[in-house]
Design a binder for these strands. Sequence first.
DNA 1: CTGAAAGCGCTAACAA
DNA 2: TTGTTAGCGCTTTCAG
Lengths: 338, 338
Amino acid sequence: MGVTIKEVAREAGVSTASVSRVLNSFPSVSPEVRERVDRAMKKLRFVPDRKAKSLATGKTSQVVFLTTYEPLFDDPHKFAILSGIERSLARYKYNLLFLQINRGDLTPLWKMASQKQVDGLVVHGIEIDLSLIKLIEEFALPTLLIGEPKEKTTLSWIDNNNEVAGEVAANCLLKHGCRKFLFVGGREEDNISTSRYKGIVRAVAKKGIGSDEVEFISVAPVPLQAEKAVKALLSAKAGSFDCIVAANNLLALGVLRALQDLKIKVPSQMKVITFDDYPFANYTKPRLSSISIDVHSLGLSAGQAIVDQMRNPERVSQTYIAFPRLNERASTRYDNEP
Amino acid sequence: MGVTIKEVAREAGVSTASVSRVLNSFPSVSPEVRERVDRAMKKLRFVPDRKAKSLATGKTSQVVFLTTYEPLFDDPHKFAILSGIERSLARYKYNLLFLQINRGDLTPLWKMASQKQVDGLVVHGIEIDLSLIKLIEEFALPTLLIGEPKEKTTLSWIDNNNEVAGEVAANCLLKHGCRKFLFVGGREEDNISTSRYKGIVRAVAKKGIGSDEVEFISVAPVPLQAEKAVKALLSAKAGSFDCIVAANNLLALGVLRALQDLKIKVPSQMKVITFDDYPFANYTKPRLSSISIDVHSLGLSAGQAIVDQMRNPERVSQTYIAFPRLNERASTRYDNEP
DNA sequence: CTGAAAGCGCTAACAA
DNA sequence: TTGTTAGCGCTTTCAG
């Protein structure tokens, strides 16, 4: 079927080794040979067979993206990250395999690893337990985790810098003159919420405002709970706040409904800001200002990082990256009501 | 590094050919040999190397999912489909590569195909132009398109049956006594909208209602346009409709806002239904009934279909599949207001 | 039913 | 700088 290195060698009148050298751009090839081989390759429309190369070198130029199988709750960030990784991997001639596991059963990954199908592993949304670590060590598989794992580890990881995102949110509100903050977060154990809260406190502190001016309430992550909690709080302490930060869109929706019921005008009497544009910050009334994390860029960086990891397997890199983007809309300013 | 077939052969006291036969479950192997080989494989924890197998057979057991690179507008369906495909491919021991192309530049796919890295191709969200067809033919690459292409083709494809989805929506409304339908769709050239509309007409016809009782208006796909159009129409022809079908969530949001402004109560005076739960049918007030298409199942079927295509490359299969699911909520019934 | 041996297409010592 | 040659690990004729 395909043209092989052998035919190219014959056409060019050199050995297959020379063709291979040209193919892999070895420095030690004379210009004439290179020239002749190049010409032959063009003439015969030669394309090297990856399978053969893989067998000979032991490398596959393939990386696997491992995630959980959850047909129902697709995390919108997951796809953006996947996309970013593929994109940056492509620049280094790596291909990306997509693999989902069920209920923590690592069998598919074991197969892939023991069959030596991949040179590297990127893990997303999977708990880092002993069985996974054992696997990674057994095959000395260069690995990158998306998201800082709960427990300390010597594996490399990359994660968003949620504190910085919180700072950006706070700065936006401070800019508009806000001084009394209410943060509506998810459950306390939620790392993301608390990091964002910390960022707010930090930003506020820089303005000389004490952290006692930033109230934190935490509710179950559905609009109704946020609505109830905010109503209760504002009825009790009317005028205690001039802005509300909601940890995500769903909570923000509840916040808006509470304010509407209480006849508190947004943004004139109360500014509201949230994180992410998923699923609907852009379609509320008024439209919500938000800090969206550019997870696609996170993916791009992750691709870069796994390549580094494959080139320097012994190196451990653990990085927070910040790509917060302020989408300022009607809920924090007067001038631009849609 | 890894255990090879050779060592297994020695351990079992047979030839490598026999090990290979056992590995591929050839019928013509004596029980004793099979037994001995099995034991040896277990003992040595043998796992065959896919790269070597690929080189020997010319097959890779890999399929590529080709889609466009668009970091900004991630189609939520895309991920669900990808997930489904991976899932069903796994059952057949195929792995899935994820590949994005930019601005229609097929170079990455050419590389992959000419390097013989994949046995099959699944295309999603990419225009089927001549260059793609040429590629597919040149490599005789088994291919499956997700979504019926605009132009007739001899390639295999699989698509949702949007007409059936339309019927399901209409039946829900008919069940509640609705007789006068308003369909708010996207642009006319939008295939999905028109198919759904057709389904409604068909369902309604079965009840002896003429298609003149189903009014179709088409607006730009943003809430505001739907809101305006519905307001204008209902002000002009008050009482002409007892239900509204919105082609998607965004339009439905506009519809709800229009009805709210007109003080028309949902669902008592007007029932509303829409398609998909993306991004927010579940969070409007009242919550929207919707017909969601189970795109993950579409992905599962697509995986099945590409496997068939690889096994029978000459066969052309073009299929509409229906997985509509009715999510009935407050916007079409009285009893269950959240 | 089983074994010997020749590939699959490319790489990588080792010599020259 | 180049060619020779022995693999990489598995499959697949072809004899036996």
